[in-house]
Design a protein around this nucleic acid. Structure first.
Lengths: 276, 276
DNA sequence: AGCCATAATACTCACTTTGAGTATAAAAGG
DNA sequence: CCTTTTATACTCAAAGTGAGTATTATGGCT
């Protein structure tokens, strides 16, 4: 959810009037977009000198957050601007197979690695690992590493250069890097916390849920196994209703079981415990 | 690793002279403790009003970091002060079974939940979940949630009250909360990233490695299965040497395989992928 | 010299969890 | 009534885990 026609993320100054950072943030977002934020989580704080190119004296401290907002018929007076994030990161969408653009990117990165013999091996390993080349598998969680590599290699531009100059659409200042941070965090998080439901309507079908997860992960999932996974977790329950709007056999509608307590640990210890 | 005899964490002001936050931080820590920090990761940024009780106008922004330091014979002029973190959080150490202190804590929390009928059920669920009561299992990752609950219920004190007033040793300002945040983060992290090795000497035995993980997690692990796990990951290799210093049959010494690239993903996708 | 406590290391085995499919059911549209 | 489309239900082998038992080296005691 953007402002300025997709050129920037909602943002604002920290003011003393607010109880807390989070409270202030919720207020700006509502003002700037007309939508209330649900889930909110701190991402990263930047305070490095000359970070944006605007504020060279280095006094700016930016505290970024990941927020999840349900895409609903605008409740307030706002006019939110929704943009799919693959507009900014076309190489991250693997739902229709490996995007062609990755071949170009890999070539340009290869050139960059080759230009400096001293760091060649190190760069090569980072590239192969992040982009799933030379035997490594694609890992959707590495969105930030990929962006940072491309940034180092000069393949992406920030701060409103014409988009022809690099891959994907750019954003104001370092907003695109912040977005990459958020994507990486969210992709990692949906694997062990039920945050997807923050993005779902009250009632939904299993395929809608799967499509949402796929959109976030940029991958296609195996339907039967996805379903098995979901009902092992016991996070959802049938409403009893069905919908025929999906075409084909009518699908059961489900709802999220809030009773389960937001903070529930799904992972389990993952350590080889001893009993004692 | 503390300063002020265990009353505070290393900390300092952000100065413009530093290239970055991290660079500044490394400098303070070295100055204050005489030890260089290895791994460093941002934890959380606090900017809430009246957070410490010192700086009531709310202008203070604190950016906290998790750092890992090898416990070595002090290389510089410093005199680092090592304190086991269970001094501050005695209820977090389950290596010798469930600590007795948890019974007291549970009682006090129960009283707190009972005092307010309106929020009773919500509090009850949080308590049971965080402390592994009424059927829930103990989850070592919830160290921060536990501290926050105890803080809300008034069972822990900050900012130098005599330690008799609460459970565990307290620290300056909100340093103990920051420590709880770090513990929680580290406990979660060692499960999917090989950060433990930042704390190990160059050469170590498998049991030493296990004891380190156990100290961090506050749990005892199943020896044969821990070993199996470790060599599945292929993170370490034999040095060829053995040591008899451990008592009993001499143990092989191992070293961490740095070649494996720090950022390596161990988890694997964890999604039910479809091939295409 | 021989035994025993202590670790280290090596196997075993049932049980669960996954990856990858196939099979059947219920609609809409021609 | 047949075909297309989506939903839902099973199956089965392979891999991974939890929980143990068995064997091998040491140093220290008697």
């Amino acid at each position: 959810m953007t402002i300025r026609s997709g050129d920037a993320l909602p943002s604002g100054p920290f003011e003393l009037g607010h109880r807390s950072l989070q409270a202030g943030l919720r207020e700006w977002v509502r003002d700037q977009t007309g939508h209330p934020v649900g889930y909110l989580e701190q991402l990263y704080t930047f305070a490095d000198r000359g970070r944006t190119g605007e504020n060279i004296d280095g006094r700016t401290i930016s505290i970024s957050y990941l927020g999840l907002v349900r895409e609903q018929p605008a409740p307030g007076a706002g006019r939110p601007e929704w943009h799919g994030w693959y507009e900014y990161f076309p190489w991250e969408d693997h739902r229709k197979g490996r995007p062609d653009i990755l071949a170009d990117i890999a070539n340009r990165l290869q050139d960059w690695a080759d230009t400096e013999p001293a760091r060649h091996e190190y760069r090569q390993r980072r590239i192969d690992f992040a982009f799933g080349l030379h035997g490594a598998a694609w890992n959707e969680d590495l969105a930030l590493q990929r962006y940072e590599l491309m940034y180092e290699a000069g393949l992406v531009t920030e701060a409103g250069y014409p988009s022809e100059r690099g891959f994907g659409r750019s954003m104001f200042a370092d907003h695109r890097r912040i977005l990459a941070t958020g994507i990486a965090r969210l992709r990692a998080k949906i694997k062990y916390r039920p945050v997807v439901f923050e993005l779902m309507p009250e009632k939904f079908t299993l395929l809608q849920l799967q499509r949402t997860v796929e959109a976030l992960a940029g991958l296609t999932l195996h339907k039967p196994n996805f379903r098995r996974l979901i009902d092992q977790q016991e996070l959802i329950e049938e409403t009893g209703e069905t919908t025929a709007e999906t075409g084909g056999r009518p699908a059961k509608l489900f709802r999220y079981r809030h009773a389960i307590l937001e903070e529930r640990a799904l992972s389990g210890s993952k350590f080889p415990l001893s009993r004692n």
